[in-house]
């Protein structure tokens, strides 16, 4: 199957007074149509930066310093500013994190859908645009009367679904959902995730789901990527990741999930995520790693493919290969 999204060596740095912080340090990723990837990692590991970089919305002092984001055959990084505006939403769409405030409070939901379509195709008639908006609303289980409503008249879950409806208006090839359920209660979370699942199947888009909620991830995604200090440490199928994580960081992350057998025991990961301004040499995880070896401190581990289509960045596995 041809990949619908290819990220190659994507690099983003933030230039602060204290120096250069490498937020994204050479990320590679490939997704095919309909594939769902979960992106997990501690705060500051580069998940949201990656989402913004893919939309080319990194703001100064941040800068995209290299790499490619190829969606459906087009490298977004080479597009002009104007063409990139058109590519947003039509090729690559984003479901926002703070659904509670992501809708303009003073205009109707409909107006916020119409302006999105109009920004991408001027040719359509008003009636046609309205019809497309109402279809999108129905596909996320919202009544078409929401078209005439304001954000404050909707519940949290409805707002998030309205955002999803906006995101799928132009049938994008890739949808990035940045913690789409973080502000919702569990019942609503489930509805929202089911909605995303259904619409992505409808339009056959690849989905990147960013989040902390491993339980939600396990139910929803096909593959999981574990990020640490701007790099993908392990990429595995969801089953492999949860039953047999390979990378010591992934192992620690999975172990830290509470379960019924070891109730009351709290497994964290020792130490703190390093500051991006002064990353440890070699493998960035080595100061916290339980299986640290001598070459971990000096050499960055290469990206290694192991059986089961898993990709790892760890010396434990690069030696075996």
């Amino acid at each position: 199957m041809t990949p619908v999204l290819q990220i190659k060596n994507l690099q983003v740095s933030y230039y602060t007074d204290a120096g250069r912080a490498r937020a994204l340090d050479g990320v590679d990723l490939t997704l095919t149509a309909g594939e769902k990837l979960g992106l997990v990692g501690e705060s500051g590991s580069g998940k949201s930066t990656m989402a913004l970089a893919m939309m080319r919305m990194i703001k100064p002092p941040g800068r995209i310093e290299g790499g490619q984001v190829i969606v459906d055959g087009t490298d977004l990084m080479t597009l002009s500013e104007q063409t990139m505006l058109k590519a947003r939403l039509s090729k690559i769409a984003y479901i926002p994190q703070g659904a509670m405030n992501s809708l303009n409070p003073v205009t109707r939901i409909g107006a916020q859908m119409v302006d999105a379509i109009k920004a991408h195709d001027e040719g359509s008639s008003r009636a046609d645009i309205d019809r497309r908006c109402k279809l999108a609303l129905e596909s996320v289980d919202l009544s078409s009367s929401v078209f005439k409503m304001y954000a404050h008249e909707l519940s949290g879950g409805m707002k998030q679904r309205a955002c999803i409806a906006i995101s799928i208006l132009l049938k994008p090839k890739v949808i990035i959902a940045d913690e789409p359920t973080s502000a919702l209660d569990v019942v609503t979370q489930r509805q929202v995730m089911e909605t995303i699942d259904r619409v992505q199947k409808q339009i056959g888009a690849a989905v990147i789901l960013i989040g902390h909620d491993m339980g939600l991830m396990a139910q929803f995604v096909d593959k999981v990527a574990v990020m640490y200090t701007g790099r993908i440490m392990e990429l595995s199928s969801v089953r492999d990741m949860f039953t047999d994580p390979k990378h010591p960081y992934a192992q620690a992350l999975i172990r830290s999930l509470p379960n019924l057998e070891n109730k009351g025991v709290f497994n964290g990961i020792p130490g703190m995520a390093p500051a991006l301004l002064q990353l440890p040499g070699g493998c960035a995880f080595h100061p916290r790693c339980s299986k640290v070896m001598e070459n971990c401190k000096t050499q960055r581990p290469p990206s290694t493919n192991i059986s089961g289509g898993r990709i790892l960045e760890c010396h434990l596995y690069s030696e075996k290969a």
Binding site: M55, M57, L85, K86, A87, R88, L89, S90, A93, Y94, P96, Q97, G98, M100, N101, S102, L103, N104, P105, D115, A116, A119, H120, C163, I166
Partner: peptide, 17 residues
């Protein structure tokens, strides 16, 4: 800094809008 301004940019709207 509001989310709806950011989301408007994600929608691919032009700066003037």
């Amino acid at each position: 800094g509001e989310d709806y301004v950011n989301f408007a940019e994600h929608k691919g709207l032009g700066g003037y809008t």
